[in-house]
Design a protein around this nucleic acid. Sequence first.
RNA 1: GGAGAGGUGGCUGAGUGGCCGAUAGCGCCGGCUUGCUAAGCCGGUGUACUGGUUUUUCCGGUACCGAGGGUUCGAAUCCCUCCCUCUCCGCCA
Length: 426
Amino acid sequence: MIDIRLIRETPERVEAGARKKRIALDLGPLRELDARKTALQQELDRIRSEQNAAAKSIGKAPPEERAKLAEGQKAAKLQLKEKEEAFGKLETELRALLLRVPNLPAAEVPEGKDDSENVEVKKWGEPRRFEFEPRDHIALGEAQDWIDVERGARIAGSRNYFLKGDLSLLEGAVMRFALESMCQKGFVPLSVPTLVRSEVMIGTGYFPGGEEQAYRCDERDDLVLVGTAEVPVTALHQDEILKCTDLPRLYVASSSCYRREAGTYGKDTRGLYRVHQFQKVEQVVIDIADPAKSLEHHHMIVRNAEEVLQALELPYRIVNVCGGDLGAPQIQKFDIETWMPSRKSYGETHSASRFHDYQARRLNMRYRDEAGKVHFCHTLNNTVAASVRMLIALIENHQCADGTVRLPAPLRPYMGGRDSIGKPLG
RNA sequence: GGAGAGGUGGCUGAGUGGCCGAUAGCGCCGGCUUGCUAAGCCGGUGUACUGGUUUUUCCGGUACCGAGGGUUCGAAUCCCUCCCUCUCCGCCA
C-alpha cells in the first residue's frame, strides 16, 4: 500500500509508475472517494463533539432533570448512526481500492513488457561444456532412484514428487548449508508458520490479486498455505512499533512453500522445475525508512545469494527485472537465474525484492526514530536457496559421465564427508 | 471437542455506567541535587485522523482499553458474536 498522500499530491507519478509496470490504474474513483471520506469525517467529528458536550452536561445535571435533557439527544443519535455507517462503507471501499494501487518502481527499473525484456546485469561462471551427453535431472534422478514423479502424482496430483535416498539427503544438505551461511552473517534463524491468516497475505502484498496462486483452507479456517517464508517472516512484527536501535532486523527462515501454479498448464511440465511444494531458505530484512539504506540492503541480499551459488560452483546471471515483469508491491527486483543444462538456459532460482514501506504500511509495522517520530519500516527479501531448482542445477551441472554427481566442497560435511553421490550407471 | 478464567498504555497492574485516554509502580526522556557508586527530587512520556497556528513549536476536535456489533443522552465498565491467551478434562502427534 502506498501513502495516500502520494495519490493526493502527485497522482501523475503514481499513474506513471503503474504504466511502467503495465498495470491498469485509474485514480479517479479513488480520489473522489478519498475527498468524500475526509469531508464526512470532519462532519462526523463535529457532530460527535456536540454530542459529547451534551452528554457531559446531562451527566452534571441533577438526576431529576436528566431524562428531560436526554430526550433532546435521541434524534441526533440516529443521524450520527446513519453517517457512521456511510463512513464505514467509504473507508472499506477506499481501502479496497488503495490495496490495488501498485508501488512505484524505481528509476533504475528498465522499461519492458515482460520477462523477455529483463536486463542482464551480471554473469558469473561459464556454463559447462560436456564431453559426454549430459542427462537431465529426471533421467538422472530416475536412473539413480532419486526421484519418483509417478508416485508423487499418484498420491498428490501432478507437479508433486518424492525425493529418495541421497537426493533427499542432498536437499537437506543444501538447505542446511544455506541456512548456516546466513546465520554466520548475523541473520537470526526462524522456524515459522506456513499456514497463515489471509490478513497476512494481504499484509505482504500477495492478496488481493494472488488468490489463484495460493492454497486456501476451507471456510472453517481462514488460513492460507504460504508460497514462501517471506510471508510469515515479514509479518513477524505486524502491528508493532520497533525501536530504531533494534533495526535492522535480519531474519532467515527455512520452510516448505506451496504454490498452486494455476495458469501454468503445459509450462515446464517435464521434471521438477515447476512444482506445487518445495523447500526454501529465505532472507528478510526489516529496517528504517531510508531509500539509500534499502538499496544497500538490496545489494547485500543479492550478494548473500551469490556467495551460496559460487560456493556451490553453479554458473548464474543476475537480471534487473523490467517494469512489465515486476509485481505490484515491488520497487525493484533482481532475479538470479542459475544455469540448467537440460533447459540449455538460465532458470530462475532466486528473487530479490525491495519494497520500501509498501508491505510495512499494510502490515502496520513501524519504528520510532531517534527523535521519537514514528515511521513505517522498509522491507526486503531474497531467496537463499530453493530446494528443487537448486537440486536440478546441482545434479545437472555436476554430473559425471558415469552418472555419479560430484559434490561441491561446502555440501560434503552434510553428506557424511562424501565427495560424490550416485552409483556408476551402465 | 467439553468446562472454566481472562485480554487495559513499552511492561506490571487499578478501574463494574458520566469526574477515565484512563490511578499507581516499573521503564524511558529532560532538568535538579549528591565528592564517587547507588539513590533522591521535579517535570515529561501512546497511536491515527483532523481544524487553527500555517516547516519546527503551540492550541483545539475526533477515534482507539483484543476485534466487530448492540443497549444508553453517555460504555474500558452492561449485552451478543468472533479472535486470542491461560487452567482442567478428552482426543491425537
